[in-house]
């Protein structure tokens, strides 16, 4: 390496990024109700407590319903938009795509507040369904970002070959296009799922009395007694997202390899 100082800085930076997360397992297994040094004995009771808390189970169930629905819907909407924007040119494309991608830069509080005002104005009751409406909106831009890469690295002559051999538009899409972009689709579903599972503000405004996992965690942070269990829960969540993301990354790379593109790295 030509720049040892730069490399050392990079490693130090990674440590800074990971430091807070590394504390999670330490205190999740620590037999003390106060999150502080010195550490006490090793225990797994905080993990056991997680499984005997009915409110947590309900929050997990709500969150899973929301995350599964939002990720599938967002990916479906993402496929339409990514296909349209990579394959066709049409007037006003930049404006339409810009509006769809807007939640990527708009502060989430604005999305949450404006949706809340409209839903209350229409007299719609706040449930998990209203959270799904909001989550689809914020997951779609991420889905499109991933699917755009998948669709744009697609070789158009493969589809043309299928048309020439007598396949219809739909059967070509099903037999040729879809299998080639499938890794991108799986990656998009997993990323949307992770975003939805983790999203707090929109759930906080739109969930009504139905708790989701993040709003449940937020409500428990006020009680010092509950903190060790939250640390255990955090450990499980971090492990789960790392596994999901590794799978998503695997499919994303396989998709790029499959269509013969070069890896430009990163989800964004």
């Amino acid at each position: 390496m030509k720049f040892p100082a730069l490399r050392a800085y990079a490693l130090f930076y990674l440590l800074f990024l990971y430091a807070p997360i590394l504390l999670l397992p330490i205190f999740a297994f620590n037999d003390g109700t106060i999150i502080a040094f010195p550490l006490k004995d090793f225990t797994t009771k905080w993990f056991e407590q997680m499984f005997t808390t009915p409110a947590l189970a309900q929050a997990v169930k709500n969150s899973l319903i929301i995350a599964v629905s939002s990720s599938i819907l967002a990916t479906t909407l993402g496929i339409f938009a990514a296909r349209a924007s990579t394959r066709f040119a049409f007037p006003g494309k930049a404006g339409i795509v810009g509006l769809i991608m807007l939640p990527l830069v708009l502060p989430e509080i604005i999305v949450a507040v404006s949706l809340l005002v409209v839903l209350l104005g229409l007299g719609i009751k706040l449930t998990t369904f209203t959270v799904i409406l909001g989550h689809v909106l914020i997951c779609t831009p991420y889905a499109i970002a991933i699917l755009n890469t998948a669709f744009s690295s697609l070789d158009r002559s493969l589809e043309e070959a299928a048309y020439d051999l007598g396949e219809t538009k739909w059967s070509t899409f099903r037999l040729i296009t879809l299998p080639l972009v499938m890794p991108g689709i799986i990656s998009s579903v997993l990323i949307s799922f992770t975003i939805s599972l983790d999203e707090f503000i929109i759930a906080f405004f739109l969930a009504g009395s139905e708790p989701t996992l993040p709003t449940y965690i937020f409500s428990q942070l006020r009680f010092p007694k509950q903190i060790p269990m939250i640390m255990a829960l955090g450990t499980v969540l971090v492990l789960m997202s790392v596994i999901l993301l590794t799978i998503a990354e695997y499919f994303r790379r396989r998709g790029i390899a499959k269509t013969g593109g070069t890896d430009t790295g990163g989800f964004l």
Binding site: S85, F88, L99
Partner: peptide, 24 residues
């Protein structure tokens, strides 16, 4: 080309208009 583009983008665009542009 334009027609196909509009048809394909319309589900996502309509969702964004209803759930984002209208609330804003």
């Amino acid at each position: 080309e334009a027609f196909n583009g509009y048809v394909l983008v319309s589900p996502t665009a309509i969702y964004a208009i209803l759930m984002l542009a209208a609330p804003l």
